[in-house]
Amino acid sequence: MTWVLNNLGLILELTLEHIRLSILPIVLGFLIAIPLGWVAYRYRLTRGLILTLVGLLYTIPSLALFVILPPLLGIGFLSEANVIIALTIYAVAIMARSVADALASVDPDVRQAATAVGYSSWGRFWGVDFPLAGPVLLAGLRVVAVSTVSLLTVGIVVGVQSLGYLFTNGYERGILASVLTGVVMTVLVALLFDRVLVLLGRLLMPWTRTRTAPLAKGAAA
């Protein structure tokens, strides 16, 4: 406990850094997954191929990725970009399937009705399909957020500061409190992201809350 009190400044700094570094891969991963997931959803033939290939990305060990990326992209081995790009790849790997599933979850009748009243394909995607895919997208995004926050700790091996520092530091110097604090703070940051996403979901998808309203018809069906 004294270790924690003596290092409050460091812990806070690393936590903020961890939050900052997590945001970009989550957002980028989401944005890149949208067109990929859409293609997988839209064209049956490519679905298996795209989702399998993208899924395989997740199986590449993060250390290997940190080593492969810099020469491939001409970025610094010890740069933040290295870690952010690697984490974005993992985010895409998870999210592309979520996007495909989310789009497939939209009621075909609603989709047809939207077309029948005069939505263009582009307008319908953003005005109908995408928002109605929201709940499943959100579920995927929550997994991505937790995964990113946890994976980011590995970035310490290429010198990118995050809560991961508390692991290596604690290990090298034999300070158990440091390791435990790292674990607890990582979990808390993950929970924070999760809460924020759920809240955003409620804010952006007010209709999902009406399902349980007393008047809702077919809610039990």
Partner: peptide
């Protein structure tokens, strides 16, 4: 087609309403 549909009313079974609007 899109222009055509916007000037013809269409009503279907189960209303076809947009659940998020």
């Amino acid at each position: 087609p899109v222009q055509l549909r916007r000037r013809i009313g269409y009503v279907m079974q189960n209303s076809g309403l947009l659940p998020h609007r």
